[in-house]
């Protein structure tokens, strides 16, 4: 839920990166963090296990500059992708303004993608949102891997409502900012409709 502060002329929006475990959600945030001007970002917080798997969430506050005299801040969150952390995932979707689904392009992860997408629909609904109406983009990550299935297949299996899709290699940053920009744009457009 965006938060508009007229006193300090700020607007804060929340974007959640969703997707199956080991799909590259945290890597997206790490790349954004590494490439953003220090004055425009806060700390990257990662609540992870000893083996660097996301336990609760990653969090990165980003300052995108000014729109119509309001400072525009985006709070980026990732969810823990592993199936058994479902209770935590549900909590993180609370008050979300936009969602990025980070799909893993490897053939062997296609079932995990589908399961996570289904889980996203359910958890959004439980938080009072609908995937069909919420600002949403789809990222096909790990396009560099030899086992990656064709984008057309990804599109056919994962695209739910004609949302924008981005091919990405999060480790090197390919497609990362394009994805962020697209979802941020959708969120701001949604705000303008209210």
């Amino acid at each position: 839920m965006s938060f508009i502060n007229y006193a300090s002329r700020e607007i804060n929006c929340k974007i959640v990166y969703y997707g199956p475990g080991l799909g590259g959600k945290t890597t997206n945030l790490q790349f954004i963090y590494a490439k953003t001007n220090p004055s425009n970002k806060g700390q990257l917080i990662s609540l992870a296990t000893e083996t660097d798997r996301t336990l609760f969430f990653d969090f990165l506050p980003l300052d995108l500059g000014t729109v119509r005299g309001f400072r525009t801040r985006f709070h980026l969150y990732t969810v823990p992708g592993q199936v058994f952390y479902d209770a935590s995932r549900k909590l993180i979707l609370k008050g979300v303004d936009g969602v990025v689904f980070v799909a893993d392009s490897q053939e062997a992860r296609m079932d995990a993608n589908l399961e996570s997408l289904e889980n996203l629909k359910i958890n959004l609904r439980e938080n009072g949102f609908d995937l069909m109406t919420i600002p949403y983009v789809l990222q096909h990550n790990k396009r560099d891997l030899p086992t990656a299935v064709p984008v057309e297949t990804m599109h056919r299996m994962l695209n739910v409502k004609g949302e924008q899709e981005f091919e990405a290699v999060a480790t090197t940053g390919v497609g990362v900012f394009e994805t962020l920009k697209a979802v941020a744009k959708l969120v701001l457009q949604e705000l303008s409709k209210r």
Partner: peptide, 18 residues
């Protein structure tokens, strides 16, 4: 009226221009 009611694509693009 939301302060963003008249936001344009250009406004949004400007955010990402750097």
């Amino acid at each position: 009226v939301s302060p963003f009611a008249e936001i344009t694509d250009e406004d949004i693009d400007n955010l990402f221009s750097e």
